[in-house]
Structures are given as structure tokens and as C-alpha cells.
Design a protein around this nucleic acid. Structure first.
Length: 626
DNA sequence: TGGGGTCCT
DNA sequence: AGGACCC
């Protein structure tokens, strides 16, 4: 059959394209003219209207949530899932899970020696990822990739290692390898253009440069918290929890254009944008409390993307019109509000040239939600709109309470999955091609493109670095049995010493860390199962205090193994030093039980998870009625 | 160089 | 309100 080269076009750019097109050299954000030049036969589908993508995207998220509530969306085509509890459950239910094999690929495994039984949690995580991918495929017709690792960072990175419609699991001994395979700091999720530039100004270009750069110097540039986060990322350490996304925090609609320079055109554009936004808001069911208008002005010497915005509260009676379905009236009133905001930014008596307008509703309140803090209860009584549609319960109060609890527990849990969305995956029915155009091709089965991100959209692509091509970096990576979590907290001189050839060669073998699985699914989903707790610690005592946390973990760790970096970093500096020197001494001896007395409170944080529990239901509900 | 989103400052 | 990040 024919595979058609296809791409999704938004205005003048190809936002994404299928693999067939990529083979011809098309890349993700290429201009339409360049793309057509490269391949004249390229078939383009308009993609400015995100409605179908959004809907399919939420179907995927919902499906994942029906298996496990901890699902965090990242854009429309990726989801992280913390499957720790599912893994634990299966582990206890199947006592004999020893000989579980790992489903799908194993990152960079050299062949022989991978005993899945050594990594029961990851192995189980890989099975869960496979099941989730299959469910997405059979119920929604979408294909995608998944990455299984102990934290979101690693799950995401490993997710893309085997691309179309495949999954890969990252073993603890390869954490350093995958980080080392990244061709530049920019490839680290969380390091954007600005940060990469600032790092470069400090002379930091490679992952390793950052791993070895003194934290204090980094803190001087970025501030303590950001500096620590950056260092952690370079080491493959990511303690951020998989935070259930729930219903969206804001809804917006925007359009970009060559030029709008008259008040009349502004008004018409605002009206158009608000009409669709109000409808979406009405379907959501919640009542927005805040409205924002943003614009982008043309400026030759570009500073191109800079936007300006003004926001204001939405009067209650207006908000009620939105939720009650009195859309036309709501639009009329909102347009007035929007024009007022517009005049706060633009002096319409002078010439102006806009290239984009965006309208946004935020501070979304569910009916019946108790108002937090200030407003208090009043709203509770006043409107009685039917509770019916509100999707989620989210109101603020809920948000507040819920957040805190989750993060910390990561320890114990830990697997996450991420998923990518399918939408594009193509085959899928609706999903993908949102617009009709594409589908001319028949849905699903056509495998055409299949895979990953759907044909069109995919995103990610590009950059994948080939492990092989990074030869260089390989030599500079951490020894594989080294726990980066631990490494990162070592003094600079020790880090250097450990990276020296002599030391590296002396290392015995294995090791490491803990593990849990995280999976990530790609195109549509990435499932990451990760265990957070990953880090293991060296001195038993340290962690022991934590009890649950550290215990289970790495049975076999050798070198630094079990130190939980998160725990370690919370210790007082003097204790850290003491620990490190103790550790250093033991380096050669290798005995392990040390004696520390940390005090305890290491984890004072207990987070519990609470929160969004109620949401889940409501979230599901939210999407269904539509 | 889209049309969305999130969270932090 | 703006800026950074993500897709």
C-alpha cells in the first residue's frame, strides 16, 4: 500500500508530520514552504482547531485513570502515570513473580545478563505499560510508546529510545548511560532555551559539565533551589511527584494573524474567540472567575514573542450566563469586558499592529464548591445552579488541600507512567486526524503511520540522539554502578576522583540502585512507572530511620548505593560532611553498616495523598457527559 | 514558528 | 503581568 507523506499544518508551519515524511527530511516545526520544497507531494491537513485532538487526548487520560488514578498530563499527547501501587499489589499477589520477564525493550542492555527477576518491579511495570498501551490501542485505536523508569525524567527520556509504537524499560545500572547519551543540556526536559544559554555562559554545554559544576557556583546564577534542581536533572534525579492533572486550570482560545490594526477588527476577533471559548466553558460546567485578554504586537526588530495581557474578575452574573447556557448574552458582556482590557494595553488613537489575540478563563469554580478563604461560603448558597455538569470538583479548596500531600510520598511509591497521546497516532480513528482530511485514508488499520505520535503530530522526534553516536560521552559518564543521586551530593574533588579512569576501572561491578519502574508511553502515552525511591543509600543507618523508605530498596547495592539523595540533602551540612567522610573512608573497605544517627526527621513530610481523590470520579464524569 | 497548557517570580 | 517551561 501507499504510505502517504502527511503533515499537520497550522498557519504557515508544519507542526508535526508522520514518519514517512520524516524520512524525507521533514522536521517538526518546519515552514510550509520549506517542507513543500523538500517534498512536493506532501499532503497537509489543517490543524489549527484543536478540538478533536483535545477530546481524544482526554479520552486517553481517562482511560489511564480508570486503571490508576495518578495520571499527569503533559501537553495533549503525553501522560505520566505513577503505577507504584499497582506494582506493589501485583508483587504481593504473585509471590512467585520472580521469573517475570521484561516486556518490550530494555535500554541499552548488552545482551546476556539481564535477569528480569532481579528487577521484579520494573518487570511488572513493563507488563502494566504493555497492558495500558494495548488498552489504548484496542479501545481508542491509538498507538504509542512507553518508557518505564523510576521517575518522570528518566521515564520520559527512555520512552523515546525505541520509537514507533514500542516501549522500553530503564534498568538502574543504565541511569547514567541514558543521561550521558544526551547530546546537550538542552535535551534535558526542564532545560529550555533560556536556561541552556545561561548554562552555556557559564561554560556548561554537556551533561557532564553540569554534573561536575560546583553547586555553589550554579546557585550564584540561578538561586539555590533552581541550581539544585538543575544538578539533579543532570544526574537523572527527579523527585517531582506525578501530580494528577485533574480538570484544566484554565481554558483559552487564540488566533494569530498577519495584521489587525483597527478597533473594529479587534472587536470582531474578540467576539469570534469568545464565542468558541464560552461554549467550551459551558461544556466544562465550571464557572470562571477571571478573564484575561492577551495580545502580541508586531515589532520589526523582533523580540518576537512577547505578549502582553490584562486580566480582571468576571462579574458573577456574567459567569452565571456562561454556565447556564445563556451564551449569546455572556459573549456580549464578555466582549465589553475584553474591550476595556484591550484599551488598557493599546491606545487605539494611535496606530497599532497586532499579530495575535488570546482570550482565557481561569480560576474555574465548580458549583457547590466551597469557597476557600476569603470569599467563603457565600457562593455556596447563592447559586444554585445545578451541580450537574461540573466536572470536577475542583474548586480551589480542593486544590489547596490536595497538593500537598502527594509529593512526598514518593518514596514509597513510585512508578509512573507516562503516556503520549495518541491522537495522532494515526490510525486511529478520530484521533488523529482531527480534521477530516486525513481520514480519507481510512482509519485505523491503515497502518500507515502508525505509531507514535500520530502521524502528524508527533512530536518528538527529532532529536533523538543515538546512543552510538555519543561515543564520546560515554567515556565520561559515571560508572554504571554508581548511583547518581549519591554522586551528586559528593564534593567536587571526590566527584572528579570517582570519574577518573583509575577509579572507574577499579569498580567491581554492579550495583545499584533501586528501582522501580516507571513507564512511559509515548505517542500517546508514556507510562512510566517509576519508583521514586530510587536512590539508595549507602549507609544503612541513614535510611533506616526512614523506615519504610529505604529499606526495601536496594538489596545489593554496592558502592554508594543506598543513599537516598533526597534524604541526604535534607541533613544538616555538618552531618552531611560527617557522613561523607565516613563514607570516603569506607570506600576502600566497604563495609556497610555505618552508624549514623541522623535524626530523623528526615522525612518529616508525610504527605498523604489525599486530595484529588474525589476528583477522579469527577474527572471521569467530566469528560463523559460530553 | 501553532495553539494550546503549567507553574514560578 | 510576565517569563520560563512543556507538548
Amino acid at each position: 500500500m501507499f504510505l502517504t507523506l502527511s503533515g499537520i499544518q497550522q498557519k504557515y508551519i508544519i507542526v508535526t508530520c508522520n514518519y514517512v515524511a520524516r524520512e524525507q527530511g521533514l522536521t517538526k516545526l518546519m515552514s510550509v514552504t520549506d517542507a513543500k520544497e523538500k517534498c512536493p507531494q506532501l499532503v497537509l491537513v489543517k490543524g489549527e482547531d484543536l478540538t478533536r485532538y483535545r477530546e481524544m487526548s482526554y479520552k486517553v487520560t481517562e482511560l489511564l485513570m480508570s486503571h490508576c488514578p495518578l495520571v499527569e498530563r503533559l501537553g495533549f499527547d503525553e501522560n505520566f502515570i505513577d503505577i507504584t501501587e499497582m506494582v506493589d499489589r501485583r508483587l504481593t499477589q504473585t509471590p512467585d513473580s520472580d521469573n517475570f520477564s521484561v516486556k518490550g525493550h530494555i535500554y541499552s542492555h548488552v545482551s546476556a545478563d539481564v535477569k528480569a527477576s532481579d528487577y521484579p518491579r520494573l518487570a511488572i511495570g513493563s507488563h502494566i505499560a504493555a497492558e495500558l498501551r494495548e488498552a489504548i490501542h484496542s479501545k481508542l485505536g491509538l498507538t504509542g510508546c512507553a518508557g518505564i523508569a523510576p521517575n518522570k525524567l528518566l521515564a520520559k527520556l527512555v520512552c523515546g529510545t525505541f520509537k514507533p509504537n514500542q516501549q522500553t524499560t530503564l534498568l538502574p545500572q543504565n541511569h547514567g548511560d541514558i543521561m550521558g547519551s544526551l547530546s546537550s543540556l538542552r535535551k534535558v526536559p526542564g532545560v529550555g532555551h533560556q536556561t541552556a544559554k545561561r548554562l552555556q555562559a557559564l561554560g556548561l554545554v554537556s551533561i557532564q559539565n553540569l554534573q561536575l559544576f560546583p553547586l555553589n557556583d550554579l546557585a550564584r546564577e540561578f538561586g539555590g533551589p533552581s541550581a539544585q534542581r538543575l544538578k539533579n536533572l543532570a544526574m537523572g534525579v527527579d523527585d517531582s511527584p506525578v501530580t494528577p492533572t485533574g480538570a484544566p486550570q484554565s481554558l483559552s482560545d487564540e488566533d494569530s494573524f498577519k495584521k489587525i490594526s483597527s478597533a473594529k477588527d479587534v472587536l470582531e476577533k474578540i467576539q469570534q474567540l469568545l464565542s468558541s471559548l464560552v461554549e467550551r466553558m459551558n461544556k466544562d460546567g465550571r464557572q470562571p472567575q477571571t478573564f484575561r485578554l492577551t495580545i502580541r504586537r508586531y515589532s520589526a526588530t523582533n523580540k518576537w514573542f512577547s505578549r502582553e495581557s490584562r486580566q480582571c474578575p468576571i462579574p458573577n452574573h456574567v459567569g452565571q450566563k456562561i454556565t447556564s447556557g445563556d451564551s449569546d448574552d455572556a459573549v456580549v458582556q464578555l466582549v465589553q469586558l475584553a474591550m476595556k482590557l484591550f484599551h488598557k494595553m493599546v491606545d487605539s488613537r494611535a496606530a497599532f499592529h497586532l499579530t495575535l489575540m488570546n482570550v482565557c478563563f481561569s480560576n474555574l469554580q465548580s458549583r457547590g464548591a466551597a469557597v476557600s478563604g476569603k470569599g467563603s461560603i457565600t457562593s455556596f448558597f447563592t447559586h444554585g445552579t445545578s451541580p450537574g455538569k461540573a466536572p470536577i470538583c475542583s474548586s480551589q479548596s480542593q486544590n489547596d488541600s490536595s497538593q500537598s500531600h502527594r509529593r512526598h510520598h514518593q518514596f514509597s511509591m513510585h512508578n509512573m507512567v507516562a503516556q503520549h497521546n495518541p491522537q495522532m497516532t494515526v490510525t486511529a480513528e478520530s484521533a488523529c486526524s482531527a480534521e477530516a482530511a486525513l481520514h480519507g485514508s481510512r482509519r485505523k488499520q491503515s497502518s500507515v503511520v502508525a505509531d507514535e505520535d500520530p502521524p502528524l503530530q508527533s512530536g518528538c522526534s527529532t532529536a533523538r540522539t543515538n546512543p552510538e553516536e555519543t561515543g564520546n560521552t560515554v567515556t565520561r559518564r559515571l560508572p554504571s554502578n554508581f548511583d547518581p543521586d549519591v554522586f551528586e551530593h559528593l564534593p567536587q574533588d571526590i566527584q572528579k576522583e570517582l570519574l577518573s579512569p583509575a577509579y572507574v576501572n577499579s569498580i567491581p561491578s554492579t550495583s545499584i540502585s533501586s528501582l522501580s519502574p516507571t513507564a512511559e508511553l509515548d505517542p500517546s502515552y508514556r507510562v512510566a512507572t517509576a519508583n521514586h525511591h530510587r536512590p539508595v543509600v549507602p549507609s544503612a543507618s541513614l535510611l533506616a530511620e526512614e523506615g519504610r523508605l529505604s529499606l526495601p530498596r536496594s538489596p545489593d547495592c554496592k558502592f554508594p548505593g543506598n543513599v537516598d539523595p533526597e534524604v541526604f540533602s535534607e541533613l544538616p551540612p555538618d552531618v552531611q560532611k560527617e557522613l561523607m567522610s565516613e563514607w570516603k573512608q569506607q570506600k576502600s573497605v566497604l563495609k556497610t553498616s555505618s552508624s549514623m544517627k541522623p535524626g530523623r526527621s528526615l522525612m518529616t513530610k508525610d504527605r498523604k495523598a489525599a486530595g484529588k481523590g474525589g476528583q477522579t470520579n469527577s474527572l471521569l464524569k467530566y469528560f463523559k457527559p460530553s
